[in-house]
């Protein structure tokens, strides 16, 4: 048997294309030849290895991206703020500080319905990774952090045209829209995120809840708040808002 014939036989065996007769004959050969048996086993293993790896490339790269994001957020949550370097507080610390202040405010001053401004803590956008980052990235970051949301929207829109699946861009794009009261567009952006599986899933859900709150659609808002899981960093604030609404 030439190597060519051997591998064709292996392939047929793997894809179960041998006739009953061929199969009997092949089994007999295998029984008599341990080396052949061993080689077939490796061939089968490689066959299934290729089948899974080549088909899961996209899935794997999505998982890697998501793990990276989760890992990065995790560090931000645990690393104490460095004293010397650029003053970049982790996003949640603004939220935590602001929500304490706001809750105080609401508690004492405002017994009526909670409002969007009471609860919306706009996170800092930080996407410039290198000094030479492209113009749009710098522009988006500057405008967003200066609360010039119309300009930020333009930049983020342009970035998303180049990198439509970037969930970080999508998330901040949604916030920029919401800040300008472009409710429906914001709902579309957050909706896509919260139906996805990225690190921004529940952050988007929180902001979509705020979107409903801003439009005074309290029922919808509460429904969204109830879906925010305990592990999410917005859980506590969401629970507080929920209590106010109930």
């Amino acid at each position: 048997m030439t190597p060519e014939e051997k591998y064709e036989l292996f392939e047929k065996y793997c894809s179960e294309e041998l006739s009953a007769e061929e199969k009997t004959e092949f089994d007999k050969m295998l029984n008599e030849d341990a080396t052949l048996q061993e080689e077939l086993r490796l061939y089968q293993e490689l066959h299934s290895h290729l089948d899974t790896t080549l088909n899961a490339e996209q899935e794997l790269s999505n998982l890697k991206k998501n793990l990276k994001q989760i890992g990065d957020t995790y560090t931000e949550n645990t690393t104490p703020v460095k004293k010397s370097k650029v003053i970049k507080l982790p996003v949640w610390s603004y939220a935590a500080a602001a929500s304490v202040a706001i809750l105080f405010g609401i508690y004492f001053l405002n017994p009526g319905n909670p409002s969007y401004t009471d609860f919306a803590n706009i996170p800092e956008l930080s996407i410039v990774e290198r000094a030479t980052a492209e113009e749009d990235i710098k522009g988006a970051e500057n405008a967003f952090n200066a609360k010039d949301f119309a300009t930020a929207e333009t930049y983020l829109d342009r970035l998303l045209k180049k990198d439509a699946n970037n969930t970080e861009f999508q998330y901040y794009y949604g916030i920029a829209l919401l800040e300008q009261d472009k409710f429906d567009m914001a709902t579309q952006v957050f909706g896509a995120l919260l139906n996805g599986n990225s690190a921004y899933k529940y952050k988007a859900q929180w902001f979509e809840a705020l979107n409903q709150l801003k439009q005074e659609k309290y029922e919808e808002c509460m429904l969204l708040l109830k879906g925010i899981p305990e592990q999410s960093e917005d859980y506590d604030t969401a629970q507080k808002l929920l209590k106010k609404l109930e």
Binding site: E59, N62, L63, N66, L67, I70, G71, T73, Y74, T78, N197, S198, A199, K201, Y202, P229, Q231, S232
Partner: peptide, 19 residues
Amino acid sequence: ALLQNDTAILTEIYQKFAP
């Protein structure tokens, strides 16, 4: 969760086992 790329449970992995 790894197979489903489930962010909530993957986050839990980091919270529980990373330290």
